[in-house]
């Protein structure tokens, strides 16, 4: 429970970056996103980004001294995460500004830079946890799962938003299904590598699967997958309710998975 701020921060930041990249991508493809919708999504991402930053501060003993966290950027992945995510949030504000001003060119440029930095931020974030001291974290699956969270939640967030605004012109479920399939593979690889790993990794796997949360997480994952597959096959029923529902289910699912990620981390 003590890592709860980090659970929320990582999920939110990955959602925000995923959503941002999606919005930027759709906007670049000259999809018909109205200025108002674009602005609203952009603002909502900025707000979520700001919330995630504030929540991440709660994890610190001295939140008001958080500014120092960028000092060790040469060595520390946490420093890099803080720096890049900070820059990303800053740029997303600028990006929002260009939505307001409706300057598509600058929007595209800033959005592109911000997206790249966002990706680096997620990479840095994952690298923080890939440490030998915690065998359950110390693998590339951590990196995959962080990016997959972004890929699962980001597009759906934007998709649900656009569906609500009745402006959804792309079938989002395809991306989401692909992400979920990857996530399932990563999950399988993850647990089998834990089982074959150090005693602390085996213990982490045991703890994870022995919690009810794990089964809720699995259930939500399967349900979301089923709904999305159904949507994918029946393009006509893509509507705001379904996307909102799937987004909420997957948000819960990812949240639970991340919660377990922290809670069952057994130190050497």
């Amino acid at each position: 429970m003590h890592d709860l701020p980090l659970v929320i921060f990582t999920i939110l930041s990955q959602l925000v970056i995923g959503g941002f990249v999606t919005l930027w991508w759709l906007d670049r493809k000259k999809s018909p996103i109205s200025r108002q919708s674009g602005l609203m999504i952009s603002i909502s991402l900025v707000v979520l980004g700001a919330i995630s930053v504030i929540i991440s501060l709660l994890h610190l003993g001295h939140p008001f001294e958080a500014y120092r966290a960028i000092l060790n950027i040469g060595v520390s992945w946490l420093s890099r995460e803080v720096t890049f995510y900070g820059i990303f949030v800053g740029l997303s504000v600028l990006y929002t500004w260009f939505w307001l001003k409706d300057e598509a060119g600058k929007r595209g440029l800033i959005g592109g830079i911000a997206s790249a930095i966002g990706v680096i931020a997620i990479f840095s974030s994952a690298k923080i946890y890939m440490i030998p001291a915690i065998p359950a974290w110390n693998s590339v699956t951590t990196l995959f799962s962080f990016f997959l969270t972004s890929l699962i939640l980001g597009p759906l967030f934007v998709g649900a938003f656009l569906a609500i605004r009745s402006e959804l012109s792309v079938n989002i479920s395809g991306i989401s299904i692909t992400a979920l399939i990857f996530a399932a593979i990563v999950m399988i690889v993850y647990f089998s590598s834990l089982q074959g790993g150090l005693p602390q990794a085996v213990e982490a796997a045991r703890l994870t699967t022995h919690q009810l949360l794990f089964w809720i997480r699995l259930f939500t994952f399967v349900i979301a997958f089923a709904i999305l597959t159904f949507c994918f096959k029946n393009q006509h029923i893509q509507n705001k309710k379904i996307y909102s529902l799937v987004f909420v289910i997957l948000f819960v699912s990812e949240f639970l998975a991340r919660f377990q990620f922290y809670e069952t981390a057994i130190h050497l």
């Binding site: 610190l60 120092r68 520390s76 440490i131």
Partner: peptide, 16 residues
Amino acid sequence: NMCIGCQMCGKACPYG
């Protein structure tokens, strides 16, 4: 004096 209490060092140290 520098520390901001992020606790990442405690996680990263193999010896806790």
